[in-house]
Structure formats: C-alpha cells, structure tokens
C-alpha cells in the first residue's frame, strides 16, 4: 500500500500538482504547462518527491486536466470535472457547486450529497474563459495579477461582443474614444460573469448555499464579486482553490483504493 498520493492537474496554461498523505495536503507546486504537458507534469512530480524526500515507489499518481491522457506515468486518470468537485468538497465541505474558469474553458458543477449531480461546460469558444481575460489585459496593458486594484466594478463599460476576437476590436474602439481603462476592465469582468450566468442559470442552485470558485482566476476578488453580483449566488473562494483539481485527483485515487 502506497503511503502518498500525488495529483497532477495539467491545464491548458498551468500545471498544478499536490502531495497528499491520505488525510492532509502536504505540499503544492505550480508551473507553466508549456508546449509539452508531459514534461511539465514530470517536473512537478520530481519537485514534490525531491522536496519532501519521498520515494517514487511510495506514491500513487493521478492525472487530470487537458493533458491527462499524455501523462503516461499516472496510475489513474479522472476528468477535471470529477476532480474539481472532490477537491472543492475537500476544501469546503458545505459547497453546493463549483465555478471553474480555466485557461481555455469554463465550467459550472452542481454538487449534491458529496457527489457531482450536474455540470455544464463552455469549451467551444474563448468567451468567459481565462483566455478572454488575458487578451483584455494585454490590450489594456494591465498585469493579470493587478486587476483587483485596478478595475472599476461599480461602473463598468459593457462589452457587448460575445466573441473574443470581436471583443478585442470593441476594446480597441473604446480606447480610441479615450474611455476609462478601469471601467473597460470592469466590462471585461462583467462579460465573463455573464457567460458564467448563462451556465449557472441552467442549474437549480440554492441562493444561500456557497459555491466555490476554483481555477487560476479564483485569486481575483474583483471577479468573484462581479460573478456573485451577476449570478446572484454566494460565490466564495479558498487559498488553495487553484489546486482544487489536483487535490480532487488525489481524493479520487484515495477513494478508489479505500
């Protein structure tokens, strides 16, 4: 019986990995996925093993995320939907769902009785994903990590284009009219929140129970506030929400073995 679990969430932008001892989260690590998801995943694995002086033979490895099929050294594979749900439940047991905005998709999960009850995914277009936000940051010349201090979420300028390519032209148009950048950024967050609402609206959520925001954008308080406002739901986050998928991968493997 192996003592430790390593979960690797190989996303389109970032590769997240965690070390779990069956009870507690021991360590976390995150790097860019890069062009080869297998290389970044094994780099995460090596780092966690080395830093915590654990032997490779003593870990059970589970892969999730877009790159999961390429990680051939994994013992188990689960989809990111299942992993985000179990990781979310581990971090906040009282949640009724997850909102995850990833690099190339966004998803909304409903949790009932500690299991996935329903989910919706937007993976056909970049609207409402991290890609949309990074495009906007680039044009507005704002660093992704600075959006909270910068954005005006009280009085946003609406971005009406749903398509990322057209929204880009729309933002350039607004800049040429010398509109306030912080209000334009507010409009960008509003647009993402509206795409999320299109999904949350199809699920019978309770207005009172909390929903965990996971994924890279869960660090942004402004975005969470905007999503709460637009969806009318109680959206919260957690310091380790970024690692929800990787944590869930460990939990799925642990549940399978126990």
């Amino acid at each position: 019986m192996k003592e430790f679990y390593i979960g690797i969430d190989s996303g389109s932008t970032m590769c997240k990995a965690v070390l779990f001892d069956g009870k507690n989260l021991v360590d976390t690590y995150i790097i860019k996925t890069g062009w080869n998801p297998k290389i970044s995943a094994s780099e995460c694995l090596d780092h966690l093993l080395e830093k915590n002086t654990i032997s490779r033979d003593n870990v059970n490895i589970t892969a999730t995320g877009y790159g999961r099929e390429t990680i051939d050294f994994a013992d188990n594979i689960f989809t990111e939907i299942t992993c985000h749900a179990y990781g979310g439940i581990y971090l906040k047991p009282e949640i009724q769902g997850i909102i995850d905005i990833g690099g190339q998709d966004s998803k909304v999960i409903q949790i009932q009785n500690q299991r996935v009850a329903d989910f919706l995914m937007n993976d056909k277009c970049a609207a409402g994903t991290g890609r949309f936000l990074s495009m906007a940051c680039e044009i507005l010349d704002i660093k992704l990590e600075d959006i909270d201090g910068f954005t005006d979420i009280i009085d946003p300028i609406s971005i009406s284009s749903m398509c990322t390519v057209f929204a880009e032209s729309e933002i350039i148009g607004l800049l040429s009219m010398e509109k306030d950048r912080s209000k334009i950024m507010g409009g960008v967050l509003q647009s993402i929140a509206q795409r999320i609402r299109a999904m949350t609206g199809k699920i019978n959520y309770d207005l009172e129970a909390p929903i965990l925001m996971s994924g890279g954008l869960s660090k942004s308080k402004a975005l969470i506030e905007m999503i709460s406002k637009i969806t009318g739901l109680k959206v919260e986050t957690h310091d380790n929400a970024l690692f929800a998928g990787a944590i869930g991968a460990c939990i799925c493997a642990y549940n399978k073995n126990n």
Partner: peptide, 14 residues
C-alpha cells in the same frame, strides 16, 4: 473529439 471525450467521460464518472 478530445472535448467531447472530457465531457462524456465526466458525465459517466458522475
């Protein structure tokens, strides 16, 4: 194909 696989595999896991 890969996106369909993710959705449908997640649905079956559910």
């Amino acid at each position: 194909v890969a996106q369909l696989k993710t959705r449908l595999a997640a649905f079956i896991e559910m």
